[in-house]
Amino acid sequence: MDNADASRLAERTRAEFGEIDPLFGEIDPFSAIIRTTQLPMVVTDPRRHDNPIVFANPAFLRMTGYERFEVTGRNCRFLQGPGTCPKSIARVREAVRAERSIEIDLLNYRKDGSTFYNALHLNPVHAKSGTLQFYFAAQLDVTERYRLIREREAANEALQEALAVKTTLIHEIDHRVKNNLQMIAAMIVLQSQRIPDPSTRASMLDTLQRVEALGTVHRRLHQSESASRFDIADFVRDLVADLVGATGRSDIRVELDLASAVIHADKSVAVALLLNEIVTNILKHAFTEGRPGTIAVQVAAGSEIRIVVEDDGIGMPEAAEARSTFGQSLMGTLARQLGARLTVASAPRKGTRVELILSG
């Protein structure tokens, strides 16, 4: 279409679009606003072949780089290119066919071939009779928004990659620590076999159990998807099974009521040692002389984490005796390190009840 044809088409459309006030012969205020606004706008005429543009305001021309005569009389698809999403184009075509509004972002092309993201708001304009007369399209260059989204996605991807590397390294450290603890445990076993004094040998075996508890912690951390979080419930399940199994006794029952209770990995070692001492003390002192019984462990998570270990054994030793043991002293030290509340009392089943409350 040459300049003369474009001008004639524009002139034929002006009266219908309302650019000239029929009473005063002056520029219609509404039309003047559309011309001067910084929001790109076009009007198309579906009554003409191929629904051509019959009006484009200066903001649209600035956004696309075209002259008025280059867009008037053409379908808006000239803004599309190889990168424009076919599904989005199909949605626009369907909206035009159905004579309904649509809001959609399209990748469009300027006259110079550069691309921009166009936030299109397309609305049909009907006469009072209901007949479709025009399509009115307001548009906005939102390329900057997409650039920021891409930058944020790239930054998130880089952060995720860095986190994955960090997690892998920490897991590798946990794996190596676990292996080293296994070597230490093996050396303790060998050394204990050479010690003739029963009390010294028993003390060495107590240390062995503490080392093995630490090994269980690092095994759990190595297997965990997160290198910074530690689930107490999973650890308790392993610890109790290992300690009771090590006694070789089948007459000690275990009751577990374990809710997932996640703490930061920094607390895992102290919690593991503390629970090891609690369960070990019960196995040593509650079921003496072949007395059968039950160990019940409950883990509950809420605003605080509550761990209860209870038995139905012979009951608590004298308070003075309890304070004199290394295990009791270690338990108190670990509880203070965790900022936890630790109470030891008689259990309803006439055994011992130990309750540990700590923050997550």
Rank of each mutant, 00 (worst) to 15 (best):
V189R: 15
S346R: 10
R91H: 05
S324A: 15
L132W: 05
Q337K: 10
V354M: 09
L120Q: 00
L122G: 08
E94S: 07
V271S: 02
D238P: 01
Y117T: 13
F136A: 10
L338V: 04
L239S: 01
E26S: 08
K111E: 07
C85Q: 15
D234T: 11
A213K: 01
L148A: 08
E94A: 03
Q193G: 10
R253E: 05
A98F: 11
V279A: 09
L9G: 06
V43I: 12
E16G: 15
R176H: 11
H49F: 11
M1S: 11
V217D: 00
N123S: 15
F69R: 01
A322W: 14
N180K: 05
M63L: 05
R353A: 03
N281G: 15
E99K: 15
V344K: 09
H121Q: 08
R229P: 03
V271W: 04
L169V: 11
I184C: 05
D5Y: 12
S226I: 01
E151C: 06
L39A: 12
P292N: 08
S88L: 10
V236A: 01
A158S: 00
E225S: 12
Q139K: 05
I307C: 07
D238K: 02
R219N: 10
T343S: 11
G351I: 00
E26D: 05
Q328K: 12
R74C: 06
K350M: 02
R291F: 05
R291K: 07
H171C: 03
L61I: 03
F17Y: 08
H285I: 14
G245P: 05
A301H: 14
L132S: 02
F230H: 03
I188T: 10
R14I: 14
I102K: 01
G293L: 00
R91N: 04
Q38V: 15
T131I: 14
E67R: 07
S226Y: 04
R147A: 13
S359P: 08
I34N: 07
A335Y: 09
H126P: 15
Y146M: 15
L190N: 12
H121G: 07
L169A: 10
P40W: 03
T343H: 09
L61V: 01
K284N: 13
E94G: 04
Q38W: 15
D5E: 14
M316T: 03
Q193K: 14
K178R: 13
I188N: 03
L342T: 02
Y146T: 15
V354R: 06
K166T: 04
S324E: 14
D234W: 08
R291H: 08
R176M: 13
E161R: 04
I295G: 02
L283V: 08
Q298T: 14
E94M: 03
R237W: 01
L356P: 06
G327E: 12
V211P: 01
A335W: 11
L181M: 06
Y109L: 10
L132Y: 07
F55A: 06
E289V: 07
A4I: 12
E103W: 08
L205W: 05
S346P: 08
R8T: 13
P198G: 07
M41D: 11
D312E: 04
E11G: 04
S192I: 03
D50P: 04
Q223I: 04
R194T: 14
R93A: 02
S228F: 07
I33A: 15
D141K: 09
L221Q: 02
R341P: 07
